[in-house]
Design a protein around this nucleic acid. Sequence first.
DNA 1: TAGGCAATTTATAACGTTATAACCCGAGCA
DNA 2: TGCTCGGGTTATAACGTTATAAATTGCCTA
Lengths: 350, 350
Amino acid sequence: MPLDDAEDAHQPNAAGSSTSNPGPNRKPTLKTIAELTGLAVTTVSRALGDDPLIARETRQRVQAAAAKVGYLPDRAAQRLRTGRTNVISLVLDPHEEILGYGTSMIRGMTATLRGTPYHLVITPHFSDTPQIDPVRHIVRNRMADGILFSRTEPSDERVKFLLEAGFPFVCHGRTELATPHPYVDYDNYRFTYEAAKKLIASGCRRLFIILPPERFTFHHHMRHGFMTAVREEGVGFEIAEGITLDSKADTVRNHVAARLADGDRPDGFICGGEVSAMAVMSATHDLGLEIGRDVRLVAKQTSGLFDQVRPQIETIYEDLSEAGRLMAGLLLKRMAGVTPVGELQAVLEV
Amino acid sequence: MPLDDAEDAHQPNAAGSSTSNPGPNRKPTLKTIAELTGLAVTTVSRALGDDPLIARETRQRVQAAAAKVGYLPDRAAQRLRTGRTNVISLVLDPHEEILGYGTSMIRGMTATLRGTPYHLVITPHFSDTPQIDPVRHIVRNRMADGILFSRTEPSDERVKFLLEAGFPFVCHGRTELATPHPYVDYDNYRFTYEAAKKLIASGCRRLFIILPPERFTFHHHMRHGFMTAVREEGVGFEIAEGITLDSKADTVRNHVAARLADGDRPDGFICGGEVSAMAVMSATHDLGLEIGRDVRLVAKQTSGLFDQVRPQIETIYEDLSEAGRLMAGLLLKRMAGVTPVGELQAVLEV
DNA sequence: TAGGCAATTTATAACGTTATAACCCGAGCA
DNA sequence: TGCTCGGGTTATAACGTTATAAATTGCCTA
């Protein structure tokens, strides 16, 4: 596709011939180029598509003319005619917007989509409606050619629906469905496993982990990695109940503070999110305890935040921007017709 | 506009009459409803638009039929015919994506746009191309009906261009242009003024401020508020040179550390961003100094971050989500035809 | 020289919508 | 009776693109 980003072409002030066009210069269409080159609209269309049926010389002539008048195809017309929308919908959950989670991903996605004809459209999912509603809406009304979303669940309704509809999508996180599907995930099992090992290696004997809400698949991955490590090492452990990575920071702080004030308090914390990690730190601080001496903490890092937080804690990095790039990349592949699911899955290593 | 969000209408399995339609049920169009009601396509179109020229009884009948088959207008066709895109473009600078700046705004915008026919499309602006390119592209090719952007400059090219083109937009931040234009801004003058006063009131005698890059209007607002306060109080001050709110956190930390190690070190810091505030805190900590005793810090808060950061610092809140809501709201007004610029401007109080 | 074939180009129709102008029909009036 | 009037409805065309089928041309073969 030779023409998708317009160079800053000058609009020639009197491009058309002596036709009495009212406006000084209208938006150039195929017709404009057809008149300019003396060809038929159809020919111009094909020439711009580099159709080998059109003589090479003609193609070049047409493409030159198009560039000269700064022609860009009308997306609405293309969409109406072909049924393709050139839109990719990112269905965003409000929770994902905290502290740049969604943002890093968006940056990655837009980077990949650059230079393609695709636009990224944010489709918010409001918490007072079922999770699947926006997805249904997009598919039913052909609002997009592909869908991206995250916070995947083991038996995700969206995945089931999209698979059945044969609609291209890539989600962040896996399911436990029998049918394989495209996804990008992070090795959250490994994350908690390594985090626990680190804490134990530095002397912790009672680990405390804050997990994502149970309905998400990565809750189970994280739990599993954690449990494997603590069982291997035979140390005490505790899984936070009543709070999750989605809980409000104040709630987490209060909960953690209560545990820290207790007799058999944990001495090692694992947080899969920056917000809750900050809450653990503030709770610790407020009780006069010290991170690194009284308790240790390993957090998942998804931004540069913890480089500046003091005292410094141990972190394990998840590159969400890379995840976004990958998700968009796989979706492009899928939309281009690649169907072997094996080529459409990726797990980012810890 | 009665129909924009489809309720989850069942697709009646054999809605059409005995016409031999190949697929079991196709996407319903005006034609579908026309056949169903025995009216002409034109009539259906008008009836759905609640055109008073159509008999009230007919309108109701048509709307009922539309709801029954789950009709939603084809956006591409509407767009092609009317020239309206039903799209609002948010032109995002990569810098704005740090720590949720853009994200909070997006949340506000999508909240306002909910229930309207408008979609929010993220148009990234890549730093290797002129700032105005995506804006030109959107206007020239009618990619959207309105534009939102931020990081406004005193003599902003985008504003000038959009004003001249008569294209609806709302920006975050003001210009110093003679022609008034729609904007939403935060009272950054007041922010730095109050921040400085607070620091001085708590005993600071040498203030240090980190400003946004000089090319942005709010650099000047912040500088002015700061200068006014320090002059009124006659205290020492220092304006960071070589670093800005956009500098990388490590750079800021090193710079601040160097100043703190100096003999006449500042004892009060003002940061208009969360990243730089964190950097000031880490620099302070690393030198064995203590926030609240040796130095004080007032930061702008745009998320819940500082509620968890210890030691606690003073912050002044800017509600970016509210800014996003307002920007979208004003843009809707503007696109609906409101032109008195006075009604399209807002400054959020500190 | 007619027929056929390949290489190009073109005409036509269609996607789903809406603006414009035309149509129909009964009521009211001269 | 013929006329206008106006409420209600409809036919037609157009937005810009592309898929399909058709047409044109030159050239080669029978």
